[in-house]
Nucleic acid binder design. Structure first.
Lengths: 348, 348
DNA sequence: GACAACAGTGTTAGCGCTCACATCACACAT
DNA sequence: ATGTGTGATGTGAGCGCTAACACTGTTGTC
């Protein structure tokens, strides 16, 4: 464990100690064939003795491969992004890549541009953007940022390959479930404007109501937080008091649904006796709320895995010099309705 | 935007176009003084025209600084780690560092060793380990892994600098609050064994009971999940049915507390009328559960920030050649009790 | 007027590694 | 004996950048 001069040992030090050339050391380190067994052993011993580690920077410089993938995310403390990130990270590690993350503080296009440049600056080989907002995706698609680039939950028409959960289908299933229970219509508390998930879930909700010929009540707009769910839940209670018939609510995520349940409870309304509630996400708590929450499960781990597979495919194609694959690939992961205690038939 | 030959442009290309030497380009890119204003402008124009980006790999090779920090985390989808990671990432970016993350799939020492080697391989300049388990911290402390290394939530005596929330104090405040309300004692549902947070919170609970001269009931052991909270909540209900007086429960995290609330509700018990419940973490939902959850707030963002400050200090000291700072630094972030609706006086 | 000081620029030598090629010994075929 | 192939190794160049130093020309100082 004593490199000459106390420096971190380099390949040449190993070579000297093993009595071979630096190239032979390189071959051993990279598992090249055509090295005599005995030589391999001697080099391995020298590596061990010196505590040598290959310098990834020098290697990256000459191979032109940094082995780093970038991830741009908006808020990694939210359930979905956190899960997706985790799935990406795991898949990347299995493929031998490092993952460098940038989370955006705000959703301004400027922030996205900065994040993109930041990753370009780091010479990432490719990038996944967990960009659930239309403006972000558009900013990224138009930018000379990191390439190849795969968007998670990106909308259509951006020209970027996209992996997403089938939000529309999930929303439709939830709404259909409520209609099937006998509700005349279903109210909706949607997510913040310009979020693709908000739009897709709202659109699924609307389409399903229209298909069933049910009236489409004015939706309320939240910001994903339990507090906004609570505030809007109270608004629904007021509407009820004003004579509007509100018997079922489809809430765009589980956190807001928690707030809604609370508001309804405070108003003395029973769930599902007076009002049925359905959420979206299937957070681990959903099953154990009181009542347990009917919601839509999204397989974020799968989304992470698929987006990485897509990205690696692009990187491989680029390196192989083959024609760039079409930009409008879209992989859709199905959503699954989980029926629990918060949904039931409307009051008579 | 046309580097000769279609290659990615390099410094020499910019130099040629601007009619200066590559060194002058380097000076401009690095904001060196002593370059004529007019030259700067010309170089800038050439950079713009070619779409030049400095190659971080080559730069890292010669400066011996990769500008990358590593983060080892266990489960980044849990509330605490996700928040902490986010805080670290933000602070790192502000300091001009990239963040590379590795999440561990399992808690085996082998996994930690692999993660540590993985980061060494990537030549990180330093590393933060969100290692809430004793075994992980010990494995890391004893390993020739990435250095400098700062542990988040690491226990004492590992020899590593540590940043942590004052779990013991938080637990004591929660328990004292319940005792002050008049409860004869407080039951405890703890986290999984070997987690430092479990141990610290259980120890705070025990100490506070002992200080008050209250009996110390046998704690129940969960795994942080809402399901385990639910299962153990039912066990508490059984104990009550068997005649044991259970009027207050301190649950080691909010997710399990959700399960406990559910189990109590199912048994027809009122919270806080029959049983008071307190959690730990203050997740965003806590305030909007029914009843709203008394819990302990942890400033994870602050933990992230402080751990990064500590790490940067180490890196700076190392580079400056000054004496290595003591290994047993311990920065403690206070926890804060949030009293809400789930705690009240015991039934008569 | 001679020298120093300094701003502004260029030249050169690596950082540690991999790639392409050269070399050498030895086998086997002709 | 000559050639050809192949396994095992070494040699040299260069990836794109920065650090150190060398070189100009201008200014200031005595």
């Amino acid at each position: 464990m004593s490199p000459p001069g106390g420096r971190t040992p380099v390949m040449a030090d190993v070579a000297r100690l093993a009595g071979v050339s630096h190239q032979t050391v390189s071959r051993v380190v990279n598992g090249h064939p055509n090295v005599r067994e005995e030589t391999v052993l001697r080099v391995r011993r020298a590596i061990e003795e010196l505590g040598y580690h290959r310098n990834s920077t020098a290697r990256a410089l000459v191979t032109r491969r940094t082995n780093v993938l970038g991830v741009i995310a908006f808020d990694t403390t939210l359930f979905g992004p956190a899960r997706t990130l985790s799935g990406i990270e795991r898949a990347a590690r299995e493929a031998g890549y490092f993952v460098s993350i940038v989370s955006l503080d705000d959703v301004s296009p400027g922030g996205v541009v900065a994040a993109a440049e930041y990753l370009v600056e780091q010479s990432v080989e490719g990038c996944v953007a967990i960009a659930p907002q239309r403006s972000l995706v558009e900013a990224l698609a138009g930018l000379p940022g990191p390439r190849p680039l795969v968007a998670v939950e990106g909308g259509e028409g951006s020209g970027l390959p996209v992996v997403c959960v089938d939000q529309v289908q999930g929303a439709r299933e939830a709404v259909r479930h409520l209609l099937d229970l006998g509700h005349a219509t279903v109210h909706h508390i949607e997510g913040p404007p310009s979020w693709l998930e908000s739009e897709a879930r709202a659109s699924g909700w609307r389409r399903e109501l229209e298909r069933a010929g049910a009236p489409v009540p004015e939706p309320l707009q939240g910001d994903w937080s339990p507090r906004s769910g609570y505030d809007l839940g109270r608004r629904l209670v007021q509407r009820r008091a004003a004579g509007e018939r509100v018997t079922a609510v489809f809430v765009a995520n589980d956190q807001m649904a928690v707030g809604v349940l609370r508001a309804l409870h405070e108003a003395g309304l029973d769930v599902p006796g007076d009002v049925s509630v359905a959420g979206f996400d299937d957070v681990p708590e959903a099953e154990f709320l009181t009542p347990s929450l009917t919601t839509v499960f999204q397989d974020f781990a799968q989304v992470g895995k698929e987006s990485l597979a897509l990205l690696l495919g692009r990187i491989g194609a680029e390196r192989g010099g083959s024609a760039p694959p079409p930009g409008d690939v879209r992989r859709v992961v199905p959503a699954r309705l989980r029926i629990r205690g918060s949904s039931g038939p409307p009051p008579p």
